[in-house]
Simulated assay, not measured.
Amino acid sequence: MLRRIVLSFGLLLGLGLGAQGTDRPAPPPTPAEKELQAPLTLEDGKPTPGQAPESAPSGLRAFGSLVLVLGLAGGSLWALRKYGRGRLPGGGGGKLRVEETLALGDRRFVSILEAEGERFLIGLTPQGISLISRLDPGDRGEPDSFDEALSRQVDLGRPVPVKEMEALLKQGGGGQ
C-alpha cells in the first residue's frame, strides 16, 4: 500500500514538473503582435486599459491545486465513513421511514409511515399532516397493501372533490 502511494506521488510530481516546461526567453513579438498589443483608442477618444502581462502556468501551482482537491475529497470520504450517512444532515435516521407515497394532485399526498415498528396511514396537504388510520402490524402483505389500505379508507370508485378530501383529512380518523 505504501509503495502504491509513493509511486503515485512520484508520478504526479513528475507530471507536474514536466508541465512546467523550460525557462527559455520568449521570442520578440512580430510587428503584427505589437500592433495587436497596443492600446486601442475608440471613437470617444478614451484609450482602453492596457492588459497586464500573463504569467506562465506553473507546474508547482498545478500540483498544489491537485493535492488540495485530492485532500478535500479524501477528507470528505473519511467524514462520510466515520459519521455515516445517518448522522449527516439530510441523511435520515433509522427509526422513521416512509414506505410508500401516493400523490392525489394539487400538492396532496397519502403515505404509509413506519415509526418504531408501528405503521400509520397519513394524509399530507399544504396546510398540515393528518393521521388517517393506524395500520395493523400483520398487514404487510404484497406491494398491493398500500392500495388495499387506501381503498379501505377512501372509496376510489367515485371521484372525490377536493373539499371532501380535505374534510376527510381534517377529521383525522378518515371517516372511521
Rank of each mutant, 00 (worst) to 15 (best):
E99I: 07
L40A: 13
Q37Y: 11
A73R: 01
G14S: 15
L96M: 07
L113N: 04
Y83E: 09
L121N: 01
Q20Y: 08
A52G: 10
L66I: 11
G141H: 09
E164T: 14
P159M: 03
G91R: 04
A115H: 11
P89S: 06
V154F: 12
P126A: 00
A19Y: 11
E43C: 08
A56R: 11
R107W: 13
I129G: 02
R3D: 09
T125G: 01
P27M: 01
A56K: 09
F63V: 06
K46E: 15
L124T: 15
G50R: 13
E54L: 11
Y83G: 08
T48S: 14
L40Q: 12
L7K: 01
A52M: 13
L135M: 03
K163T: 12
P57W: 10
E148I: 15
P143V: 03
R97C: 07
G117W: 01
L40N: 11
F9V: 07
L88H: 10
I132N: 01
D136A: 15
R81C: 06
Q51C: 07
T101E: 11
P29H: 01
P28I: 04
P57I: 07
L135A: 02
G10H: 02
G75I: 00
G128S: 03
G14I: 11
F63G: 05
L156M: 12
G93S: 09
P47A: 10
T48C: 13
F9C: 05
K170L: 10
I129A: 10
S151L: 12
V162W: 04
A103E: 13
R85K: 13
G45D: 05
A149I: 02
Q153Y: 05
I5W: 07
A38R: 11
A149H: 02
P53W: 06
G94S: 14
F146E: 02
L104H: 01
E100D: 12
L150C: 03
S8N: 11
G92F: 04
V6N: 01
E114W: 02
G10T: 05
E118S: 14
S130D: 09
L72N: 04
L121K: 02
T22M: 13
D136W: 08
L42A: 13
L11D: 05
P161V: 10
G105L: 05
F63D: 02
L13A: 14
Q20K: 08
P39M: 02
P39D: 03
A26L: 13
E35G: 05
D147R: 15
D139A: 15
R97P: 05
D155S: 09
G94C: 10
T48R: 10
L36Y: 10
T30D: 13
K46V: 14
